[in-house]
């Protein structure tokens, strides 16, 4: 006697969406913290944001937007049975995701060199508002970067399954789910970018 499992794509997608809701609220909790502390320290948040590089932030935003587009297009490619194009687009997504992380690494490195990181005594001298701003900055972008890494691993697994034809034009719900996850990561960045870089 075998338990037969039927494939049901809508079930799988519903599960993914519900999971995304938990991610939205996970970051939502941080947005609550952000809004409270921004309300209490408007001036120092405003001044602290000057030290972030708008140029790198903008480049990273565009990188993520393009990577979102490539993974969305890879679904169309799979639907049209164009395996090569799908793999190419997913490869681009992975490269762009890595590029985002490299940028982030240099950005963080610059701050840490200037002794701006949570717990640093130099930062503590700059006052409460700066401590909270950078605390939130490192925590939120750090958590976001962690999600980028998870997303990249997810996409790499999916790419491997496409190579082995496990994901094909008949069965691509996993590709769609990895896309949904990646878009959510993008979505969160769309809000992080103005809240940290553009409040000068």
């Amino acid at each position: 006697m075998i338990l037969v499992t039927h494939r049901d794509d809508l079930t799988s997608k519903t599960g993914m969406w519900l999971f995304l809701f938990t991610e939205m609220l996970l970051f939502g909790g941080l947005f609550i913290v952000y809004s409270v502390y921004r309300y209490r320290n408007p001036v120092s948040f405003h001044l602290a944001a000057h030290d972030l590089s708008v140029a790198i932030g903008t480049i990273n935003t565009i990188i993520l937007l393009v990577s979102s587009t490539t993974i969305a297009m890879s679904i169309t490619a799979i639907q049209k049975k164009n395996k090569k194009l799908a793999l190419l687009l997913l490869g681009m997504t992975i490269v762009l995701g890595l590029a985002f992380l490299v940028n982030k690494y240099f950005e963080w490195g610059k701050h840490i060199k200037e002794h701006i990181y949570p717990g640093s005594s130099v930062l503590a001298l700059r006052g409460h508002g700066d401590v909270l701003f950078y605390g939130l900055y490192f925590f939120m972008t750090g958590l976001h970067a962690l999600h980028i890494i998870i997303g990249l691993v997810f996409i790499m697994v999916i790419t491997a399954s496409i190579l082995r034809d496990k994901i094909n034009s008949e069965n691509y719900v996993l590709l769609e789910n990895s896309g949904l996850y990646w878009h959510l990561v993008d979505l969160i960045w769309i809000f992080l970018f103005p809240l940290f870089y553009l409040i000068t």
Binding site: M24, L26, G29, H128, L136
Partner: peptide, 20 residues
């Protein structure tokens, strides 16, 4: 998820002294 992130903040607070 709200308690998830709150508990993570407590962990960060203990290890990194963020100041939340």
């Amino acid at each position: 998820p709200i308690i998830g992130i709150t508990l993570l903040m407590i962990v960060a607070e203990r290890t990194l002294h963020i100041g939340f």
